[in-house]
Design a protein around this nucleic acid. Structure first.
Length: 418
RNA sequence: GUGGGUGUAGCUCAGUUGGCAGAGCGCUAGGUUGUGGUCCUGGAUGUCGAGGGUUCGAGCCCCUUCACUCACCCCA
């Protein structure tokens, strides 16, 4: 038996790093006024089809979709935004507070071919803000991401930003793009010619060399922005500059989900092979209304948690493991029983204590104590029990002291709490 | 969905022309009868990914298949 393809166990030795990231992210989110939200892993398929877009790869071929016993079509969430928007509308959150900020951390599911930094169950750290149209919020989210990566000790990441325009400027852009593509049609790859009808925007993001050359001077959304979108984007850039956040304007950055408008960005790394995006986000001013809520500007991002951890592992950012406080070496049945009772009391007092119940030799127990990286060892044998004194050995200094049996526990707590 | 690479002990990997299944680490026991790390000596652990074929004989050659992995695609 083994895990199914693209799914994996995250083993205890990797957990400290995951927890470190979670801790830093949560701390930062709270400082910026975000509240945690927890959403279901399963939703109606329709939610994702409508929000992400029917002709996207995610919806067309990557979702885990199946009928439940009553025949409803359900899908394991491939991303968080759609569910958070659904929740926002369902609970009429716009009615109680015009501005809401959420974050969540959890698994997403996409049935892609696995490779480095890409799994079928992968984790995202997600943040969304509803109700703010100002460009300062766009800057703030990029700034926040930048700050998080800085706190995690990461460098060598670059922020790529672009503006995708709004429903007002998009028609003129699409026309300009289609006219241009029509003239280059013969040079485009099969994939791109197919995309022309379905999602011409994505052609700008094609990685086939010939296509890249053919579309080198294609019209970009940036060149067709309406006045409002242009002002918005300029404010984002100017603010980031003032805050000292490095960024690259990348005309070819196109988000893969249909709902994005205006600002879109991606944080890229060079250390993960082909999976360069560790975080991505953008504005989606039309989605809340599209899904049945009131017109509400919104913006959010997702961090690829797995990828982030892999980048951190490569530069060795794992926090050091805390050593064990005490290991009880007990020799003989009486000592084992006593040791067991002591260990529970110490655990209960918050002291990390371990012992071994396999009836091993003293040498074997000392070896195990050493392996567990313990600070102290309590040696309890027949001799000690009859003499009412127990030996406490400091494993670093090799010093040993005798403790009286009557006052053992309080005495130990006193010494070990230091 | 498409291509490349790799599958041998718990882990990392050797394995020559087809001829007894190996090393290091780890685990374990002892040296030291009740004191760890270093050192020394011993021990255990294998469906050589699976199935078939060729051969007196296959870890090695051939076929099939599965898994893992990297890349394309796409994205976090």
């Amino acid at each position: 038996m083994q895990t199914i393809r693209g799914f994996r166990d995250i083993l205890p030795k990797h957990i400290p790093l995951w927890q470190k990231v979670e801790k830093e992210a949560t701390c930062l989110f709270e400082a910026f006024g975000f509240k945690e939200i927890r959403i279901p892993i399963l939703e109606k398929t329709e939610l994702f089809a409508r929000s992400i877009g029917e002709v996207t790869d995610i919806v067309e071929k990557e979702m885990y979709t199946f009928p439940d016993r009553k025949g409803d079509k359900l899908t394991l969430r491939p991303e968080a935004t759609a569910s958070i928007v659904r929740s926002y509308i369902q609970h009429k959150m716009y009615a109680t507070d015009p501005v809401r900020k959420f974050f969540m951390i959890g698994p997403m599911f996409r049935r892609e071919r696995p490779q480095k930094g890409r799994y079928r169950q992968f984790y995202q750290i997600d943040a969304e803000i509803f109700g703010v149209e100002s460009a300062y919020i766009d800057s703030q989210l990029i700034y926040l991401l930048n700050e998080l990566f800085k706190r995690l000790g990461l460098s060598g990441l670059s922020a790529h930003i672009n503006s995708l325009g709004c429903p007002k400027c998009r028609p003129s852009f699409q026309k300009a793009l289609l006219d241009f593509l029509e003239s280059k049609k013969s040079r485009l790859c099969d994939n791109c010619t197919r995309r022309m009808d379905k999602n011409p925007l994505r052609i700008l993001d094609c990685k086939v060399l010939d296509c890249k050359e053919a579309i080198a001077d294609a019209p970009a959304t940036l060149d067709c922005l309406c006045k409002e979108c242009e002002d918005h984007f300029n404010t984002v850039k100017a603010t980031l500059e003032k805050q000292g956040v490095d960024f690259i304007v990348d005309k070819s950055l196109v988000r893969g989900l249909d709902y994005y408008t205006r600002t879109a960005w991606e944080i890229q790394t060079t250390t993960l092979g082909a999976q360069s995006a560790v975080a991505g986000g953008g504005r989606y001013d039309g989605l809340v209304k599209e899904l049945g809520g009131p017109q509400t500007p919104a913006i959010g991002f997702a961090i690829g948690f797995d990828r982030l951890v892999e980048v951190m592992e490569q530069i060795d950012k794992a926090p050091e493991e805390k050593p064990l406080d005490l290991f009880i070496v007990s020799l003989g049945d009486t000592a084992m029983e006593k040791g067991y009772l002591w260990s529970c009391k110490l655990n209960q007092a918050g002291i990390r204590t371990e012992m071994d119940f396999r009836g091993k030799s003293m040498k074997a127990l000392m070896k195990r104590a050493n392996k567990l990286n313990t600070q102290y060892v309590l040696i309890a044998g027949e001799n000690e029990l009859t003499e009412n004194t127990i030996i406490l050995r400091n494993m670093n200094t090799k010093e040993q002291v005798s403790l009286s049996l009557e006052t053992l526990i309080p005495e130990l707590i006193k010494i070990l709490k230091k």
